[in-house]
Computed example of a mutant assay.
Amino acid sequence: MSETTLDVREIPPSNRHPKIHDAFDSLDSGDELVIVNDHEPKPLFYEMQAEVESFDADGYSVEQRDDDEYVARFPKQ
Rank of each mutant, 00 (worst) to 15 (best):
Val36Asn: 15
Ser54Cys: 02
Asn15Arg: 14
Glu47Gln: 12
Val34Trp: 01
Asn37Tyr: 05
Ser54Lys: 11
Pro41His: 01
Ser2Tyr: 05
Glu69Pro: 03
Asp68Ser: 10
Glu32His: 04
Gln77Arg: 13
Ser14Trp: 01
Gly59Arg: 01
Asn37Asp: 12
Thr4Gln: 14
Met48Tyr: 14
Phe55Ala: 08
Met1Pro: 15
Ile20His: 04
Asp38Met: 05
Leu6Gly: 13
Arg65Ile: 14
Pro41Arg: 01
Leu6Ala: 11
Asp25Phe: 07
Glu53Thr: 00
Arg65Gln: 14
Gln77Thr: 10
Gln64Gly: 10
Glu40Asp: 12
Pro18Ala: 01
Pro43Thr: 03
Pro13Glu: 07
Ala50Asp: 10
Asn37Trp: 06
Thr4Glu: 08
Glu10Met: 11
Glu51Trp: 03
His21Leu: 15
Pro43Cys: 06
Phe74His: 04
Ala23Val: 11
Pro13Leu: 13
Thr5Glu: 11
Lys42Pro: 00
Asp66Ile: 07
Tyr70Pro: 04
Lys19Gly: 11
Phe45Gly: 05
His39Phe: 10
Met48Gln: 07
Ile35Thr: 10
Phe45Ser: 03
Ala50Cys: 02
Pro41Lys: 02
Arg16Leu: 02
Glu69Leu: 15
Thr5Met: 13
Phe74Thr: 01
Leu44Ser: 09
Glu32Pro: 02
Lys19Ala: 14
Arg65Tyr: 08
Val62Arg: 08
Glu69Tyr: 00
Glu32Met: 13
Asp25Pro: 03
Val8Leu: 11
Ala57Ile: 13
Ser2Asn: 15
Val34His: 00
Val8Asn: 04
Lys76Asp: 05
Leu27Ile: 11
Gly59Asn: 06
Gln49Val: 11
Lys76Glu: 02
Ala72Ser: 15
Met48Lys: 11
Ile11Pro: 09
Lys42Ala: 10
Tyr70Ala: 03
Lys76Ser: 02
Asp7Phe: 07
Val8Gln: 07
Glu3Gly: 08
Asp56Glu: 07
Phe24Arg: 06
Tyr70Phe: 15
Ala23Asn: 05
Asn15Trp: 00
Ser26Ile: 01
Glu69Asp: 04
Asn15Met: 13
Asp68Phe: 02
Thr4Pro: 04
Asp38Gln: 06
Val34Leu: 00
Asp66Val: 09
Ala50His: 12
Ala23Glu: 05
Ala57Thr: 14
Asn15Phe: 06
Val8Gly: 10
Ser54Arg: 12
Met48Cys: 09
Lys19Ser: 10
Leu27Pro: 03
Ile35Asp: 00
Asp58Glu: 11
Tyr46Phe: 14
Asp25Ser: 14
His39Asp: 05
Asp58Arg: 12
His39Asn: 05
Glu3Arg: 13
Arg16Ile: 02
Phe74Gly: 05
Tyr46Met: 11
Val52Ser: 02
Asp66Gln: 08
Glu10Cys: 08
Met48Gly: 01
Leu33Glu: 08
Arg65Asn: 10
Glu63Val: 13
Asp28Trp: 01
Glu40Arg: 07
Glu40Ala: 09
Glu32Arg: 13
Phe74Ser: 05
Lys42Gly: 02
Arg73Thr: 11
Phe74Cys: 12
Pro12Gly: 08
Asp28Cys: 04
Leu44Glu: 12
Ala50Lys: 14
Glu47Lys: 14
Asp58Gln: 13
Gly59Met: 06
Val52Pro: 04
